[in-house]
Design a protein around this nucleic acid. Structure first.
Lengths: 217, 217
DNA sequence: GATATGCCGTACCGTACGTTACGGTTCGGC
DNA sequence: GCCGAACCGTAACGTACGGTACGGCATATC
């Protein structure tokens, strides 16, 4: 478990200029891959290296700030679990699945995960923790209330929300993320994502939907 | 899709000494993470840097050779699809699931995937291709015959073997690999892996097992 | 025994990059 | 108009590392 980054404080009081610098770093990260040198960021952001070091401490600080800055922008409006019927539950799940597939297949996510994974290999794991906290765990935090509402309503049947979430996660993501991270060309069109989201949702309902019709004799 | 590495030729005619050097590189990669410098490999393998360059060309060559060397060691005996009944099919699937979980949670796999992902971020994607070809795609190549045998025998029901495989893959792996790659401590005990493999297999059978009993009225 | 081959150990080179330092410029406050 | 703070642009420093060169040793071949 990762508890080192319980809550990302986006209240870091970033000035507009600093946000612009981080945006530049982010663009550079996505476009150039690993060529995220301090010189390159300074040039791209039209600022001096001295300023980068004053604001962010060192390269790690800049990297962390960049990842957190992107994370702070990804916050998605949570879904309310009110007035739940099968149709709205299905729609919610499909929405989550579709959103998640769009996120993990985006250039930004791929670049961010790559740099965080590289970073995790070398001692300090803070970047990985940030990415995980704002990706997988944030998704779980938003989806679990929906699952539990579905269970209360009798639409879903599962013992543990965490386990149920992980099943849904697996059905949605499958091998997409690892293939993209490893450089596999795997272009997901809007239509393909929609189809995958619907399929994953139906499979999840088949596994955890409450048995309503006649069954097993 | 990745077609640049259709077949890994392990017939590279490695001498015993070269294998020992690659083993040293592999150990270093696993233990030290990203500190896989040419100097460190030479010291660990008790060989000269000049020899490394003569044998493997450059750093990329050494990395590629190391990854392929590890890949050549991972080959698992395929499962035959003869005399298939539900029990043996279930056992086969559980075995695949368990093996796969063991692989992706091993230090070696994590280190290898990390270096390949870092590499994929910087232009050349050969490492990622090798890892994918010997990981995900090799698994698919071994599992699909089993799935198709199950379908022929009437035990399984699915339209596309590739899609069915990806469903199984998702049910087995879920969020394990990305969490480990991002540095999340997530120790899978032997027992936990066994339980996960059984759960994933049952879920897969629930989705794609041929309907035998009375159903839907 | 002489010569050749292959490899170890190590010193060395060039470069890339993180980090620091500094002169010049802009800008808000008095 | 003047001051100081913040910042830009760039030069410079230190180091790490990929890659090369070379002397020495051990084994093989004749």
């Amino acid at each position: 478990m990762l508890h080192s980054v319980p809550e990302i404080d986006t209240s870091e009081a970033l000035t507009e200029r600093q946000k612009a610098v981080l945006d530049a770093a982010l663009r550079l990260l996505v476009e150039e891959g690993d060529q995220l040198t301090m010189t390159a960021v300074a040039r791209r952001a039209s600022c001096s290296k001295e300023t980068l070091y004053k604001w962010f401490g060192d390269r790690d600080g800049l990297l962390t700030a960049t990842v957190q800055w992107q994370a702070s922008k990804v916050r998605v409006a949570p879904v309310d679990g009110k007035g739940l019927d099968l149709a709205s539950l299905t729609a919610s799940l499909e929405r989550f699945a579709s959103d998640w597939l769009k996120v993990i297949s985006s250039d930004t996510s791929i670049a961010l995960n790559r740099v965080a994974i590289s970073h995790a290999g070398s001692g300090k794991d803070n970047l990985g923790a940030v990415v995980l906290e704002n990706g997988r765990f944030a998704l779980a935090k938003r989806l679990k209330p929906v699952l539990e509402a579905g269970r209360r309503t009798g639409l879903l049947d599962f013992a543990d929300a965490e386990t149920a979430f992980r099943t849904f996660f697996g059905l949605v993501a499958r091998d997409v993320q690892i293939r993209l991270l490893l450089g596999d060309r795997l272009e997901l069109t809007e239509a393909a994502i929609g189809g995958d989201a619907a399929r994953a949702t139906q499979q999840f309902l088949a596994l955890h939907g409450a048995k309503t019709g006649p069954q097993g004799l």
